[in-house]
């Protein structure tokens, strides 16, 4: 009888500890998961800012008459494609993220090409509005890169947390899944050209 009580007590204690452990893990997972989602919104804001600010760019460039039409139409097409792909922060599947990223990168690198080509147009360089845009362009790209890195950091934190033993058991029970990452950016090599060009001036 006495032995039975002790064993029951021990089992009860272990159960209690593991329930508390599970609650703590669950709460941490919710917090971290929400952190990843919140960071995604920041990423979205940075990308959206690039969309918004390039609206003016087309007018500025077109006003400087003789600019290469093909480069400009490339950017415009890539931009309108990227505008169409929006994703819900609460439904970030790897496939959707890849699709979003592909469209944004296509837009980003065509924009980078335009900014590089613009070096050869003194007319355009002379326009104050365009020089202002160059400064803003750097800021846009810097913000996007910062928020992307933070997103990957947040996602990595979360993924590491839920895959470590014994948290992985709780993660499976509560249905937490790995979050997707951003891939390394294709076409990122376009940005430094602009930097060098600016420094030379």
């Amino acid at each position: 009888m006495k032995k039975g009580t002790i064993i029951l007590g021990i089992i009860g204690f272990i159960l209690l500890v593991s329930v508390f452990n599970g609650c703590g893990s669950y709460n941490s997972m919710v917090t971290m998961d929400e952190g990843v989602t919140a960071q995604w919104k920041q990423v979205g804001v940075a990308y959206q800012a690039r969309m918004d600010k390039t609206k003016n760019l087309f007018e500025i460039v077109q006003s400087a008459a003789d600019f290469e039409k093909s480069t400009l139409t490339d950017v415009m097409e890539a931009r309108s494609k990227a505008t169409r792909i929006q994703i819900d922060a609460n439904n970030l599947t790897p496939e959707k993220m890849a699709e979003f990223e592909k469209a944004q990168n296509a837009f980003g690198s065509s924009l980078g090409r335009l900014m590089a080509v613009a070096e050869n147009y003194p007319n355009l360089q002379a326009v104050q509005a365009f020089r202002d845009f160059q400064t803003q362009y750097e800021g846009m790209e810097n913000r996007i890169s910062t928020e992307r890195i933070r997103f990957n950091d947040a996602a990595q934190n979360f993924n590491t947390y839920i895959r470590r033993f014994p948290k992985n058991i709780w993660a499976r029970i509560f249905g937490f899944n790995k979050r997707a990452y951003f891939e390394a950016q294709a076409g990122a090599e376009d940005a430094p050209d602009i930097k060098k060009m600016k420094e030379a001036n």
């Binding site: 810097n142 913000r143 890169s145």
Partner: peptide, 10 residues
């Protein structure tokens, strides 16, 4: 917090 804003140069 900081989000990559601002500008720089030489």
């Amino acid at each position: 917090s900081f989000g990559g804003g601002g500008s720089g140069g030489s």
